[in-house]
Design a binder for these strands. Sequence first.
DNA 1: ACCTGAACACCGTTCAAGT
DNA 2: ACCTGAACACCGTTCAAGT
Lengths: 209, 209
Amino acid sequence: MKPGPRRSVSQSDLVAAAFELLEQKGFAAVSVRGVAAALGLTPTAMYTYFPSKQALLVAMVEELLSGVAGQSSGADASPEAARDFLVVTAVALRARLREHPGAIALVTSGPLDGARALGLAERLGEAFLTSGAGDVDTAARAAHALLALVLGQVALETAWGEASEIEPAALWSDAPPHPITDAGAALGVREGAEGEFRLAIERLVDAWR
Amino acid sequence: MKPGPRRSVSQSDLVAAAFELLEQKGFAAVSVRGVAAALGLTPTAMYTYFPSKQALLVAMVEELLSGVAGQSSGADASPEAARDFLVVTAVALRARLREHPGAIALVTSGPLDGARALGLAERLGEAFLTSGAGDVDTAARAAHALLALVLGQVALETAWGEASEIEPAALWSDAPPHPITDAGAALGVREGAEGEFRLAIERLVDAWR
DNA sequence: ACCTGAACACCGTTCAAGT
DNA sequence: ACCTGAACACCGTTCAAGT
C-alpha cells in the first residue's frame, strides 16, 4: 500500500505524529520531514494534507485546546458556579499546556485564532458575565486577562524550569542576591505548584467580578 | 582589516545586528549566518563571541529588559508610589516587547533567567512588599503573576494581530458568532490599546495589595 | 488524486587550517 | 587569539514526473 491514488493516512495521523515528536524530542524536532518520516511518507506528501507547516501547527493548537472548556459555560448557572468554571477552566488549560514540553513555543509560534481558541475566549467571557462582570465589555477584558495570565504563567514556568538545569553554578557568582524571588522559588512559584497557580487565578477572577 | 588576531567587532555589535534583523525581517531571520553576514563576518566567527546561538538570544533578552525597571524600586517610598512603580514598569515592559516584532518568540524561546530578568522580578517583589503585600511570599507570588500577565498579554496581542491579517474572509464562514469576544475586539482588546492594558494591570496589582 | 525524487535556498555547529 | 573555508547533518518548500 505504498503509492496509489488512495489516501493512506489522515490529517489526524499527521497531528498525532507531530505530538509524538513534540513530546519525545521537543518543539525543534517537530519538522515536516520528521512527521512525514514517522508515517513512512516523503516530506512532500505532507503538502497534500496541509498547505504549510504553519497549518500543521495551527491544527496542533486546536487539538490542544479541544475539550478544555466543557460544552456549557454555565450561562444559566449561578454566579458561584460560573466562578468555579473560570477557575477550573484555567487550571485545565494550564495542565493541558504543561503536558507537552514545548507547548507554549507551539502556542506562541502558531496563531491562536483558530475556532477552538476563539470559542474558549467566548466561554470565558460568558462565565465572567454571569459571575458578576457588569457588562459585555468588562467580560471581554476579563476573559482576555485570564487567558493572558495562564499563557504567561506557563511561559514563565517553562523558561525558569529549563534555566535551573543549565547553570547551578550561578549561585556562587557575584550577582546581587534576590531574597524575594528566592523566597518565591522556595514556595514553588517557579516550578509551578498547582496551589500557587490556582491562588493567582482566583485573585484575578475575583478582581473582575 | 579583514583577518588578524585583533577583535574586529564586539558582542554588542552582534546583538545590535541581531536586533536589526529582528526588526526588519522577523524572528525567523535572526540566524547565525545572517547576523555574521550583516557584520561582514563568516558564520563561524560568531562562535568566538558566543558559545551558541542560544547565548546570543539570551543576550538579546537581557538587552531588551535593561532599563525597564529603574534603579530604585521605591523600597523606602510610600505605598502609593510603589503601586505607581508597578503599573509604570508593567506598561514599560509591554512597550519594550512590542517595539520589536517577534520579541515574545525571542523571550519564550530563550530562557528568562538572565541577571536582568531576575533583577526585574526582584524589583517588582520589593514594590509589592512596600505597596501593601503582607509578606515576602505573597510579594513573590504577586511579582510572578504580574510578569506572567504582561508576557501573556503581549503574546495574545501578537498572535491575534498576525491572525487578523491572514483570513478576513472568516467573517463569512459558518462558524458560530462570538458576541463577547467581538465586543472585545471592538474595544481594542485584541489590538492591545494601552488603556485596556493598563486597566488590567491595575486590577491585578490592586488584587495583591 | 496522491505520492515520489530531485532540487533550491537555507539552517546551527564542528573542525582543520591560516595569520 | 581571531578568523576563514569546507563540511556535516539538517531545514521548508517547489516542481516535474510517475501511478
